[in-house]
Design a protein around this nucleic acid. Structure first.
Lengths: 138, 138
DNA sequence: CGGTATCCATTTGGATACTG
DNA sequence: CAGTATCCAAATGGATACCG
């Protein structure tokens, strides 16, 4: 499949499905961190990711595990120890993620600039035309 | 920046920010379709994307335009004609998207399989242990 | 045609408290 | 330590109606 097949609805399912996992904020972070840690413990991972709640990290890890991207190993000790790592499948995902990561680093500045220009223009228009707020946040 | 910098919180901002745009269902679809259309009209685009509402397509396009990824050209005719296309910046994004698209095509089957195995195991465990529903959807 | 405005159900996710 | 359960506020997004 390639971008050429975009209009083929049935072929979009895979992409949609994968995006629902990759697309969320925390999944990419988790995969990114796991990519350079062989294994890592829950709280260690939590501390590495700025702003993630325990609930969301648990949910994210469960979903990644369910999709066969992440392994979860429980060591029956006291206190309990649980280690997470990437599966073979998960490791193959680091390449496209890396590509996206590189793109972000390279072009984030351009996006910030574009937003500033857009917002300034919108503000100027809004000052003259009280109408048309473009869904006014929604 | 690379995956090696994941733990550096400040460097994660760019990735997070880009993911908030790329991550959502419709943005990737829109960029994918625009990538092979030079320009395309609103309703033509809407028909190409299975299941998108007018509201969401408008919102998606506005965000992409704001981020400098998409151009919006209004032709003052009756009936009105509006054409969308990728900017130069938007075109550079098609490469990482293509990589992700290829990955999806290649590994979607493995994900589906992994889910089936995981769910079967979970169901079996749940049958014995009424407790522990792993957030029981939420 | 290409939107915008509004209403409203569903989803999402943080905060908090509790557990083996 | 590594979760789970529950509550609840905010964001998300579909449906519908209307407009230049």
């Amino acid at each position: 499949m390639s971008l050429q097949d975009t209009a083929d609805r049935s072929n979009c399912t895979a992409m949609s499905d994968v995006l629902n996992r990759i697309g969320d904020k925390w999944s990419v972070m988790v995969v990114g961190i796991l990519a350079r840690h062989d294994t890592i413990r829950f709280n260690e991972l939590k501390r590495s990711i700025n702003g993630v709640s325990q609930r969301m990290l648990t949910l994210t890890l469960r979903n990644l595990e369910r999709d066969g991207l992440v392994t979860r190993t429980i060591y029956p000790e006291v206190p309990p120890r649980v280690e997470y790592g990437l599966t073979q499948l998960g490791k193959t995902l680091t390449n496209p993620i890396q590509a996206l990561w590189n793109w972000s680093a390279e072009h984030h500045g351009a996006i910030i600039d574009a937003r500033a220009i857009y917002d300034q223009r919108e503000t100027a228009i809004a000052a003259e035309q009280p109408r048309k707020a473009a869904y006014a946040r929604g």
